[in-house]
Write a protein that binds this DNA or RNA. Structure first.
Length: 588
RNA sequence: GUCCCCGUAGCUCAGGUGGAUAGAGCACGAGAUUCCUAAUCUCGGGGCCGCAGGUUCGAAUCCUGCCGGGGACACCA
């Protein structure tokens, strides 16, 4: 059964069609005007007026005449210039509630033709610890993979580590300056390297910025890193061995960070994994004339007539002979085409890289690797400090993601103790709850903004637990769980739903809007639509919960109806939480 | 200089494929707990939707220009 809005749209669409007007004009949407009396409205009469050559109110009246007596509609009236206001019949609302209550998906539709969707997280660089900027790609990308999966698509997610470019040359040469005697730097040695890595994650975090700083001031130092990068890519054994160490050390740290965040990847591939494809790809591009030589480098020209802006060519091979991230991106597209064959690939990467992806997508299209439209840059804005500038710590350094997570969990822990909650469950469970609450606060605070906005990161706000926050959603879910336990003790079972009170009806209508929110979130690649829906739902539940006694309701029938309503809410709320990567504890 | 993103309440942000009186949270003020979790609920004040034009029956939403903020413009990622 479709949503109430869709059912109404069908009825109104039929009415418009029978008047020889486009069916789409019958589209019914939730009304913000006076939702108490008329929760839905249809605006089709106004645009119809022009083509029909009649006043909009007259058309609206004709539509009303056609839908008169339809069992779905309790009351309809014309307002203003020709708005059609609609009140669905109580029976229709109850029927929809019953369906949502019995449906595993809580009323959410699935796609009829599943696609293969690849999600590229534009991975963190090996060598750099995760900072708050990574929060967005991780949390956003994770929510998107959950959304598309829930929608019925097949999703393959890939962290796509940055482990093949100049930063590796920086690391190698910087390590050599510190420890020149390591066997990796002796070109005469080609095997038998130590199995233990010569560095830990803190070393990597120090070495990279150190080298990067030097290279900015010293052209020779930069040239040295470039040479090392080219040698690494050409296969120098000691450098390859070091690369392996760097990746292992880095991946271990990243797995912990992502594990803490609850973010999962199907593939932990990186740029270096497509190395073997690069020579062939470059040769092929040259042979087919896709690539051409320019200033000692091999490039793919991607500018087009009619471009508003002159787009630079994509550099495939540098004059040094090494490949850049455009090269590995193209090779990765080839790799995925051969191994996965995705219908759609989403790159969840910040919007500063818009031009880069435009270049890559055009080059991929030009070379016949992937048609335009099958590759999409899901861009997002920066995370700023309260001063509006890119977020930094007090001393100007980057803000580590792990520190943010830790402070949010600590705040949640304090809050639990203050309230004397989760005290009787044991220390381990208490910590688990604090983690869930802290993470919910961070993730929701990040996801509730539309992705392209640059938003202000305020630790206090991020770890606040009141109002439109992750913990509010958890709290609503926890109250229902607690209620369900009490109901079981009292022997009350959920029964047929009959929404009588305004709060009950509003709750059903909130539940009914899930499918539309899901659709919007997927189409726009914007989980904030789910944040909004989940919050509206939780709010509708809180109102219902405070206005309508459940276990102490007057009759058994009302008890059972309200309990069923609460249970349906819990189910949908937990689905929403799951789509956002949040999890509700049993109690908090 | 060219191009991209953005400008909505004191603060942080939704809404943006055009619809009626522009929303939420925080903050501020007032209230609600013999009863299922008060991390809750109820009520209130608070707005030239950056500015100016245009299209339209109707513009926060679409178009143009300007102002302001952020970002990108071939051998970093």
């Amino acid at each position: 059964m479709p949503s109430i809005a869709e059912q109404l749209s069908r009825v109104l669409g039929d009415a418009f069609a029978s008047l020889e007007l486009p069916r789409e004009l019958g589209r019914v949407t939730p009304s913000k005007q006076n939702p108490e009396r008329f929760p839905f409205q249809c605006n089709g009469a106004m645009p119809a007026a022009k083509q029909a050559g009649k006043p909009p109110r007259e058309i609206a009246q004709a539509v009303l005449d056609r839908i008169a007596g339809d069992a779905l509609i309790e009351k309809a009236e014309i307002a203003g210039p020709g708005f059609i206001n609609l009140l669905p019949a109580a029976a229709a609302i109850n029927a929809r509630a019953a369906e949502i209550a019995s449906d595993d998906r809580a009323g959410a539709p699935q796609v009829s033709e599943p696609r293969k969707v690849m999600i590229d997280f534009g991975g963190p660089n090996v060598a750099k610890p995760m900072h708050v900027g990574h929060l967005r790609s991780s949390v956003l990308g994770d929510s998107l993979q959950r959304l598309f999966r829930f929608r019925g698509d097949t999703v393959i997610s890939d962290i796509h580590l940055g482990d093949w470019g100049l930063q590796m040359g920086h690391l190698i040469t910087e390590l050599e300056e510190e420890q020149p005697d390591l066997p990796y730097f002796d070109a005469a040695i080609t095997e038998g390297y130590p199995s233990e890595p010569p560095v830990d994650i803190e070393d990597l975090a120090r070495l990279y910025p150190q080298a990067s700083r030097k290279a900015k001031e010293d052209a020779d130092r930069l040239a040295k890193s470039r040479r090392a990068t080219a040698e690494l890519q050409a296969g120098r054994a000691g450098y390859r061995a070091l690369l392996r160490h760097f990746i292992d050390v880095s991946v271990a740290a990243l797995k912990k960070d992502f594990g803490d965040l609850g973010v999962h990847f199907d593939l932990w591939k990186g740029e270096s994994d497509v190395n073997d494809l690069i020579d062939g790809l470059v040769a092929d591009f040259k042979a087919r004339g896709v690539a051409e030589e320019s200033e000692g480098a091999w490039v793919v020209r991607v500018a087009r007539d009619g471009d508003k802006k002159e787009l630079a060519p994509l550099i495939l091979v540098t004059s040094e002979g090494s490949s850049l991230y455009g090269t590995t991106d193209l090779a990765t597209i080839l790799d995925r085409k051969q191994s996965v064959g995705p219908d759609l690939t989403l790159y969840v990467v910040d919007l500063a890289q818009s031009d880069h992806f435009e270049q890559v997508f055009r080059a991929a299209d030009k070379a016949g690797l992937a048609p335009e439209g099958s590759l999409e840059h899901v861009k997002f804005g920066t995370v700023n400090g309260t001063d509006g500038k890119r977020l930094r710590t007090r001393d100007g350094g980057t803000f580590r993601l792990a520190d943010l997570i830790a402070s949010a969990i600590e705040r949640a822990d304090q809050r639990l103790k203050e309230a004397g909650l989760a005290a009787d469950v044991g220390a381990e469970e208490h910590d688990r709850v604090a983690r869930m609450v802290g993470l919910a606060a961070i993730k929701f605070a990040d996801l509730q903004n539309y992705r392209t906005t640059n938003y202000v990161f305020d630790l206090d706000r991020f770890t606040s637990f009141e109002g439109k926050t992750g913990p509010y959603l958890l709290y609503a879910a926890v109250r229902v769980k607690s209620l369900m336990r009490r109901a079981a003790e009292a022997g009350v079972e959920p029964g047929p739903i009959s929404a009588e009170a305004a709060e009950e009806r509003d709750l059903v209508l909130a539940l009914d809007a899930f499918g539309a929110a899901l659709e919007q979130a997927c189409e726009n690649r914007a989980p904030n639509a789910i944040c909004d829906h989940a919050f509206t739902l939780a709010q509708a539940f809180s109102k219902f919960y405070s206005a309508c006694p459940i276990l102490s309701a007057e009759t058994e029938a009302v008890k059972r109806s309200r309990l069923a309503l609460a249970e349906a809410t819990l189910k949908q709320l937990e689905l929403c939480l799951g789509l956002l990567g949040l999890e509700a504890p049993e109690r908090m």
